[in-house]
Design a protein around this nucleic acid. Sequence first.
DNA 1: GTCTATACACTGATAGAC
DNA 2: GTCTATCAGTGTATAGAC
Lengths: 189, 189
Amino acid sequence: MKQETRKDEIVNTAAKLFKEKGYSAVTMRDLATTMGIKAASLYNHISSKQDLLKTIIISIAEEFTNGMDAIINSEVSTISKLKEIINLHVAITANNTSGMASLNNDWMHLEEQLDYYLKLRTDYENNFLTIIKEGISNSEIKANNPEIIMFSMLTTLRSLYLWIPKKEDLNTSDLSNSLNDVLIHGINK
Amino acid sequence: MKQETRKDEIVNTAAKLFKEKGYSAVTMRDLATTMGIKAASLYNHISSKQDLLKTIIISIAEEFTNGMDAIINSEVSTISKLKEIINLHVAITANNTSGMASLNNDWMHLEEQLDYYLKLRTDYENNFLTIIKEGISNSEIKANNPEIIMFSMLTTLRSLYLWIPKKEDLNTSDLSNSLNDVLIHGINK
DNA sequence: GTCTATACACTGATAGAC
DNA sequence: GTCTATCAGTGTATAGAC
């Protein structure tokens, strides 16, 4: 564990507030009050409010990109790859629920980094879709509309940040397994 | 079709802008400019910005409540009830994609109506969960964690607003059927 | 139904003292 | 690392003319 710097504290506090009210509704004075200091003091550690958003979102987006790159290049079955994608989302979200909220809801307020974020996001979705289409080709997956399959899985996984903090006794591997059951095998008997 | 009043035009334009940037990031001047008038003129038709949010969110929330009340009181199988819930979400979302974005993302900015909204939402989720638990009791549904089943279905359905506008050639009944396949029957062969 | 003019609180951010 | 003081710009909303 790296030592948490003052900037890290500010970023983490900002992420929590952004999760509650959204980037635009959180003022630098709100953030400073929560930290127990004055707004001007924040600027000794960060350069702008936008800097906070960028720091929160881009690091998580890159985690997803790196995870997906490893998965798509692994030589396992499609069903195994999908399980690994579920594990990836559960692991990243459990580690940073607040940041996931900003990633999902406030990416449009990125300025300089918006295009870069959108590229990471599009690439991720394309890789996900490729995996599903492979599964349909090799008959591991039913020939449903692949976009709907991806949409359904991805929106569930992207919304995990809403759900994980509610379960105080979270076991990430139990959660991954349950999601795998529901998302892959369906719910009807 | 009722005639669209000036207030309706303002509400619909506001919903579109709220969908793009979120309630807090949209200014009354933005809204006025989009309408082709000055900000002050808006106040001849509405009483406040908050009034717009309330109008957008509460009417949709009540549609969901009414739909759910009909479903939970119908005497059909659990699988049929779940199909009807999917139909309900597809129908409401197809009819008002922008409003669904505000419902999902900006409900926390409601003021007087916040508690009322939260009650409608909690009741809806409890009814949904009751239906799933009934299905497990009567062996229509696998004995997975019912909260995870609801979470997975509901987050997918709540995110439909992101997906429906992308499909220019939308056939709502095809979409409902595809979602039913994926959500109920799973994706693996 | 829309305008101009205006109020006045709040916003992100900087300068410079300690 | 935090403070006080401050600025220029923007926020919602109102009053009153046309």
